[in-house]
Design a binder for these strands. Structure first.
Lengths: 363, 363
DNA sequence: CTGTTAGCGCGTTCAG
DNA sequence: CTGAACGCGCTAACAG
């Protein structure tokens, strides 16, 4: 069926080993035979069998990239940058380009483990886990065990957008590119507080997610620093102004309505991310409330569409493309890990039109 | 190093063939030995070597998905739906789940070919090419040759969002899920015409792209049907109101400024897609023009953010998730190809706030 | 510089 | 129902 090395060798009148050598170019071969072989390859339209090569050489062309959802631009941008560093583009720049296997976990822990197994099967050269981690004790342990085994067998592991692996400090290195979610969230809420807001609703992401937790912690740190800690009457009120949902638009819509029900005098809502924030905006508009006059709204991530939203969204920028590029280089072993194995990507407050001082309508 | 079939066999006191049989479950094995083997697998944390299996069985766990840019939600949504059908999720629903290899071509013909080679190397089980095709004679032929070879070697080929393969009708089947871009564009421009617009600018995508061509053709069909064909004075004017750019926001921004330069009395602008339309909106706003009072704007694709844009965008919906699902099933051989090998996905005009009748300011 | 020889780890005959 | 033997296509020693 398919033409093999042996076929090429026969056609060129050499041994298959010689063909292999000209193909890989990692061994001296005389110019004349090289040419003869190359001609035979062209004529026969020969394409190496990646699996056979991988088996024999004990190497792989695959790098796994786990994301929650490629349809979400957050992961899309990350994946795109990773791809650029991993893939054929990188190959053309002269570094053994590999194939990026993008795996959609949908945020499901089981899917995450399933994919890790599949990638282990394929003896992937690297695995990048992106986005917030599910923080159940059991799942953390399971993932950790898998990653340690993968790393032990030579697979490079990179975490991007989630906290470093905890636990015993032995085991092979797992490098991490993490985002300063907590700091960003803190600065965002500080911004609202300094505008004069005091009754601030918070639409958090799914529970048991590292990203959700960090952003919420940052939010509460800012509140506490203004004397709105959970032990104060006003702060206790703030606690009740937190609702959890998923990281999508409909979730923001529902959450905003719920928050208004709990506290009609709300003057600001902070959302878990930009998509959620757009849902919040839609709900407020449907309720006849104007943004930011009646209620200020803020998001997180600064995805491209946030600047075009109505009104343009105040948010926290995460340089996703930069993070993805860095993670990709690490996964390809083309860049040495940062000291301590953890690089933190800083986040930046972006103030736009969706936040303004609360209108103190008399009272 | 890694534990192999033989290790498991030794531990279970059976032959490696038996282990292979219980693993694949496609051969009768007695209950007791089966259990013994399974225990050994557990104890040793055995994970099959995908490459060895693929080599021996001449099958592959990979399905390639070529996209222009995963960071673009258009492709993200498509890829997500494809993934769901191809990946571990499908596996859990009980159909040999495969790994989706998402390849970013960046719209580059060379990258497209490079990836096709890489996938051929891996003996991919399927390949899905998404998005508009580059329509140069040379590249079309090159891709066609590659696809024919892949199909001949048993790889299932699916085109999604691009026109069917042209050329001699021999060769193995290549199924296509194509979008009715032309019809959608026609209806969109008809909508503007029926609102009363006559001086309509058009921001087209990159030249030599099937999507660009089809949308532009639809636009011009609508014009011609209203007696604004290229042979009429007014129609000839319309021809000069077309500028080409890339499928992104900055391109729309620049194009809008250029169009205003060519025709300050413009009352509407149709964009190649929603991202471009947002760029157009931004440019108009910066020029102090209001949408839709001064200028109506329309996009294409109906990506999620379009409804939240300012104002909400009139556009043409393509059911991308549905298309991706369908293409995924076809690539997995889980659904039989449509008669003729071509399924056309219909598009739907979505009218929102960004289009309105032109304000006939006296004159 | 080149050919010969072994495997890589698994699926699959073919006997038993 | 099970084991032994062979080969998938290629790379990597080892000789020459």
């Amino acid at each position: 069926m398919a033409v093999t090395l042996a076929d090429v060798a026969a056609r060129a009148g050499v041994s298959s080993a010689t063909v292999s050598r000209v193909l890989n170019g990692n061994y001296p071969v005389s110019g004349s035979t090289r040419e003869r072989v190359q001609r035979a390859v062209e004529e026969l339209d020969y394409v190496v069998n990646g699996q056979a090569r991988a088996l024999a050489a004990a190497t792989s062309d695959l790098v796994g990239v786990l994301v929650n959802d490629v349809a979400d631009p957050f992961f899309g941008i990350l994946a795109s940058a990773l791809q650029t560093e991993i893939g054929a583009g990188a190959a053309q720049r002269g570094g053994g380009g590999k194939l990026a296997v993008v795996c959609n976990t949908g945020g499901s822990p089981e899917a995450e483990l399933t994919y890790l197994t599949l990638l282990e099967r394929q003896r992937a050269a690297g695995v990048v886990l992106t986005g917030g981690a599910v923080e159940s004790e059991e799942h953390t342990a399971a993932v950790r065990a898998r990653l340690v085994r993968l790393a032990a067998s030579g697979t490079r592991i990179v975490l991007c957008g989630r906290p470093p692996l905890t636990g015993p400090d032995d085991g092979p290195p797992v490098t991490t590119v993490t985002f300063d979610n907590r700091g960003g969230a803190r600065r965002l809420t500080e911004h609202l507080l300094s505008l004069g807001h005091r009754r601030i609703g918070y639409v958090a992401g799914p529970v048991e997610r590292s990203t959700t937790r960090h952003r919420l912690e940052g939010h509460r740190e800012a509140l506490a620093a203004r004397g709105l800690g959970p032990d104060t009457p006003e702060g206790a009120g703030a606690l009740r102004l937190t609702v959890h949902g998923s990281y999508d638009r409909p979730s923001g819509y529902d959450a905003a309505l719920e928050l208004l029900r709990r506290e009609p005098r709300l003057t600001a809502i902070v959302a878990a991310n930009d998509s959620v924030a757009l849902g919040v905006c839609a709900a407020l508009r449907d309720r006849g409330l104007s943004i930011p006059d009646d209620v200020s709204v803020a998001g997180f991530d600064d995805l491209p569409f946030s600047a075009d939203a109505c009104p343009a969204l105040t948010t926290v920028r995460i340089p996703l493309a930069e993070a993805g590029t860095r993670a990709g280089r690490l996964a390809m072993g083309r860049q040495s890990p940062p000291p301590g194995g953890v690089a933190t990507i800083t986040t930046e407050l972006i103030v736009r039109a969706s936040t303004a001082p609360p209108v103190t309508s008399g009272s």
